[in-house]
Design a protein around this nucleic acid. Structure first.
Lengths: 180, 180
DNA sequence: ATGGCCATGTAACGTGTTACATGATTTC
DNA sequence: GAAATCATGTAACACGTTACATGGCCAT
């Protein structure tokens, strides 16, 4: 149930077209809730149908840009949803399944994959740190920031924390497997 | 594409019925790849159809236990899949979407939800630590363990690492929001 | 023999993924 | 004005979720 709310959030930050939304889902918002352009167009159609967003023009739309903005009902819906008690999603990591498969098979060496994934996670960590440096200088530790800035930074900090933890874990796991 | 392989892995560890598989997905395997019993039965039917697993009896199956075991083709399929290069899944966390929504709405206080989730993550961390203490005493740091043990422990260690990182992040985020 | 529980399964729907199609705009 | 590119969209399917149904087993 998060995709429509991620879209509403992004449109509240700044109204835009579907393609622009899709681009944003390649970064920022998409770092925590990914979506393809097909999903986004489908969801925008639903949101429009439900009266939660409105497009600049409702004409024949093939090829022509449509600019979306959030309606009051959309804002209220987002507010209600944000306040609901929600259970954390169970974790889902293919690499963990593969490691357990390797454990039971006994014939599969995943150290190469581990190294490859480490490079990807390190790159993502660098992206996050770059964003923090550029967009949130002095937020970490310092005080005197408004709530919106603190919240946005908290989300970014979560990404940094996860990637760093992943890398630390992978170093350990690799060292243990190499020692063997 | 992980569910069938998670099932094959679990059945290789020990052949069992669909219901027993569903129970295992409530813990152990399911900590990293969750599934409901409906998904499991559907997937078992596909795996059987594809000749990757075999059931003890193929008779009218309503109400009667069916015991599944992995066939050689299933083992080979799992091996091939494990060795494939796979991209890490993009992260997906509803709470992060909600935090960004709160940032743009300005009228939503998520500190209560943060505290509630912290309790859940702390409980999960305790579960992992308990398992580590019971099933992998002396693995952390020590040497002289076989590859299978090291791999299984690595998966558990990932869970511990993630939950600990989540909690550390949440403490920081909460402190920053309270300071404000 | 009935009531409750357990294992297996169906159905319907929502979400996510992949491949492809169409109209507009730009560029040469 | 043909080719390339961009924005929007369709279609089909795989995966995940929720609600419910059926047959067997067990305890009373």
């Amino acid at each position: 149930m998060s995709l429509p709310h991620a879209i509403l959030t992004s449109l509240l930050e700044k109204p835009c077209s579907g393609a622009e939304l899709a681009r944003r889902f390649e970064k920022s918002i998409g770092y925590f809730w990914s979506a393809t352009h097909q999903q986004i167009y489908r969801e925008l159609a639903k949101l429009e149908e439900a009266g939660l967003v409105a497009a600049s023009d409702r004409e024949s739309t093939r090829g022509r840009q449509r600019h979306f903005a959030v309606l009051p009902a959309g804002r209220e819906g987002l507010e209600r949803w944000s306040l609901q008690e929600q259970a954390p999603r169970p974790m889902r990591d293919e690499l963990m399944v593969r490691l357990r498969a390797a454990a039971v098979l006994g014939t599969v060496d995943l150290r190469g994959e581990l190294v490859r994934h480490m490079a990807l996670h390190r790159a993502q960590l660098d992206v996050y740190r770059e964003i923090e440096h550029k967009d949130f200088p002095g937020v970490r530790g310092g005080s005197g920031h408004d709530a919106s800035t603190l919240l946005q930074h908290a989300v970014l900090a979560a990404g940094i924390s996860f990637e760093a933890a992943w890398l630390a874990w992978a170093e350990d796991a690799l060292a243990a497997l190499d020692r063997n």
